[in-house]
Amino acid sequence: MSRISVRGFAVASATAVTTVGAVVGVASGNVQPSGDNLEATAADATLLADIPVGQQAQIQVSSLTQQADAQAAAADAAAQKSAEEAARIQAAKTAKAKKEAAEEKAEREAEAKAERASRDSVRDASSFSAKSSYSVSEVQAIARQMIPGDQFQCFSNIVDHESSWNYQAQNASSGAYGLVQALPGSKMSSAGDDWQTNPATQIKWGLNYMNDRYGSPCGAWSFWQANNWY
C-alpha cells in the first residue's frame, strides 16, 4: 500500500498493462526492450503485484469518489453562477419597475399640479366688466378664464349643442334661456341679477349647476351624450 500510494493507482494500472505487453512482446520475439526499460517494467509489475486485490479495489473506489467529488464541485459552481445571474436579472427588473413607478408618480403629480394651477387661475364672474353686447369669441374667451382647463372642452360641447354660444338664446316653447339653456332662465339670478345680459353670470351659474348635479362639466357632458339633455 505504501508504494502504490506514491505512484498512484493509475500509474500502477498503466504499468501493469505495459508490463504485460512487454512480457508478451519478448515472448513472441516482436519487442526487444532495453535493459533500463526491462528493469523499470519488471519493477512496476512487482509494485502492482505487491498490492493485495482488496486494496486495489479500494484504490479504484477512491479514484471514482474523487472524480464524483470533482463533478459535484463543478455542478455547485455552475449552479451558483446561474443563481447569481438570475439574481442580477431580477435586480435589474426590480430597478426598472421602481423607475417606471417613480416616473408614473411624478407624471401624476405634475398633472395634479397643473390642474390645481388651472383651477387657481380661474376668474370669477364679478372680475369681468359688463358690456352692452358680446361676440361669440368674447363669450368663449370669458368661459376659458372661468372654466378649469381640463373641463373646458366638455363645457364647450354642451354650450355648442344648447345655444351655439349665444348668451341671449331663448327656447320659444320651453322658455329655456342663455348659454346653458337654464329652465327657467330666472334660475340664473342666483349667480347675479344681470343673468339675462351678462354671459359671465350665465357661465358661473352653468358651471355651478354642472358641478352640483354631475360632479363636473365632463360628468354633465357624459350624461348629455347618453340622453341629449342634462
Score class of each variant (00 low, 15 high):
residue 57 A to F: 13
residue 99 K to Q: 12
residue 11 V to Y: 03
residue 8 G to W: 11
residue 201 T to E: 06
residue 230 Y to C: 05
residue 152 F to W: 02
residue 156 S to V: 13
residue 76 D to I: 01
residue 144 R to V: 07
residue 221 W to Q: 02
residue 206 G to A: 10
residue 80 Q to M: 01
residue 157 N to F: 10
residue 129 S to D: 13
residue 73 A to G: 11
residue 46 T to Q: 05
residue 99 K to A: 11
residue 204 K to V: 06
residue 125 A to R: 13
residue 196 Q to T: 12
residue 194 D to C: 08
residue 116 R to V: 00
residue 175 G to S: 06
residue 117 A to F: 06
residue 4 I to P: 01
residue 53 V to C: 11
residue 109 E to Q: 06
residue 196 Q to E: 15
residue 52 P to W: 08
residue 168 Q to P: 03
residue 230 Y to A: 07
residue 11 V to T: 13
residue 178 G to E: 00
residue 63 S to N: 09
residue 55 Q to F: 12
residue 68 A to W: 15
residue 10 A to I: 03
residue 172 A to M: 05
residue 230 Y to K: 15
residue 3 R to D: 00
residue 109 E to V: 05
residue 204 K to P: 01
residue 84 E to K: 02
residue 98 K to Y: 13
residue 26 V to H: 02
residue 129 S to C: 12
residue 196 Q to P: 07
residue 87 A to L: 02
residue 143 A to S: 01
residue 162 E to V: 10
residue 222 S to L: 01
residue 229 W to C: 06
residue 111 E to N: 14
residue 94 T to V: 13
residue 69 D to M: 14
residue 33 P to W: 00
residue 89 I to Q: 14
residue 192 G to Q: 06
residue 129 S to E: 13
residue 173 S to D: 13
residue 96 K to M: 08
residue 150 D to Y: 00
residue 226 A to S: 02
residue 182 A to S: 12
residue 136 V to Q: 03
residue 91 A to V: 10
residue 67 Q to G: 14
residue 29 G to M: 03
residue 58 Q to P: 07
residue 192 G to N: 12
residue 135 S to N: 04
residue 208 N to I: 08
residue 105 K to H: 04
residue 108 R to M: 02
residue 134 Y to L: 08
residue 215 G to A: 15
residue 193 D to L: 10
residue 171 N to C: 09
residue 143 A to D: 00
residue 49 A to P: 00
residue 144 R to G: 05
residue 101 A to M: 14
residue 28 S to P: 03
residue 90 Q to L: 12
residue 228 N to I: 15
residue 91 A to P: 09
residue 117 A to E: 15
residue 141 A to M: 08
residue 109 E to T: 09
residue 139 V to H: 00
residue 78 A to G: 08
residue 78 A to V: 08
residue 85 E to G: 01
residue 229 W to D: 12
residue 184 P to I: 15
residue 119 R to C: 14
residue 30 N to S: 05
residue 230 Y to G: 01
residue 29 G to D: 02
residue 113 K to E: 07
residue 90 Q to V: 10
residue 187 K to F: 09
residue 135 S to W: 03
residue 53 V to H: 10
residue 86 A to Y: 06
residue 60 Q to Y: 15
residue 185 G to S: 05
residue 158 I to F: 07
residue 207 L to F: 10
residue 179 L to V: 11
residue 183 L to P: 02
residue 109 E to Y: 07
residue 60 Q to A: 10
residue 157 N to D: 09
residue 141 A to W: 01
residue 205 W to Q: 11
residue 38 L to E: 01
residue 38 L to N: 03
residue 169 A to S: 08
residue 100 E to P: 03
residue 62 S to L: 04
residue 150 D to T: 05
residue 185 G to Y: 09
residue 85 E to K: 00
residue 70 A to N: 13
residue 55 Q to E: 08
